[in-house]
Design a binder for these strands. Structure first.
Lengths: 153, 153
DNA sequence: AATATTAATAGTCAAAGAAAGTCAAACAAC
DNA sequence: GTTGTTTGACTTTCTTTGACTATTAATATT
């Protein structure tokens, strides 16, 4: 049974695809009405599925004629991966955040689903069954190392 | 009297056969209800009868609209990769041996050069900058984890 | 014109709800 | 008596909802 959040996510993405644009403005209440849900549900969808690390950027304005603008970041692969390696990931990264990044670069077509799954396997909690320096630190190293293949290979 | 676990196992397998598919999504509670048992019984069945080495792969998600996805693996490269995972690699593997395995599976066309490079990056010495002599142990875990992707994709 | 008021938006946060996961104790089969 | 099964209490994760807050634009008032 599809979750509402998933449906809304797809809806927004289709709107963008159909309009062949990387920028979309929505009306929160209108959208909520369309799906017959609480307006804050829209915020939930945006904050879980249209985050920076998934390649989206949100701007909004309240008041009369307010709106939510969703912008899909156009990411030259190299600089995006570079950003991930040199800025975003840092010295430590949680499994959840790493997974999000992976989902994002797969969606962008930067890695194949299988490549993504390989990386996922490497950085998941089970594999990193390491004490000593914290798990997240080892994960960050591993992850960056694998990502660098994408821009050097 | 047939054990409940066996009955559930058969039930799931029949569902897949009947639907003529190798992928099935179930609702844990629903299934438990159907058999009038504790939900965790389903986990037991899955974890004892639908394991990787038996050719199944499980993915799940919690929360509203959660599910358990059971995937039946195809048996082509499975036996070879299975051999690597369950027999060859064992609890520990050196970097050199791991590299050899990788070269081998690339040559066989089981992984692409890039996939191989990704794995190489994950298991090389630098990434595994874990103290302790357990480097080879961590490497084995990582490696097997990544390899398992190959027979689940 | 400047300022206050009102209506129209959107944001936040926490509680409730809806799954699935874990673990260990009790139980059964061999 | 050792191994495999069943059960249930507790935990974790993710989603949905709603009450309350904050901001902005439009409008009315001075």
């Amino acid at each position: 049974m599809a979750r509402l959040s998933d449906v809304i996510e797809q809806f927004i993405k289709e709107l963008m695809r159909d309009a062949n644009t990387d920028m979309l403005e929505i009306q929160r209440n209108e959208l909520a009405d369309h799906f017959n849900c609480a307006p804050s549900q829209i915020n939930y969808v945006l904050s879980t599925r249209f985050t920076i690390d998934k390649g989206y950027y949100i701007v909004s304005r309240r008041g009369g004629g307010g709106f939510i603008r969703i912008k899909k970041l156009d990411t030259d692969t190299r600089s995006y991966i570079g950003y991930l390696i040199f800025e975003y990931i840092g010295d430590s990264i949680s499994q959840l955040d790493a997974s999000r990044v992976l989902a994002n670069i797969e969606e962008k077509g930067i890695v194949t689903p299988r490549e993504r799954a390989i990386m996922e396997a490497a950085i998941n909690g089970k594999s990193l069954n390491v004490f000593s320096p914290s798990k997240d630190v080892v994960r960050a190293k591993l992850f960056k190392s694998m990502l660098s293949v994408l821009i050097t290979g």
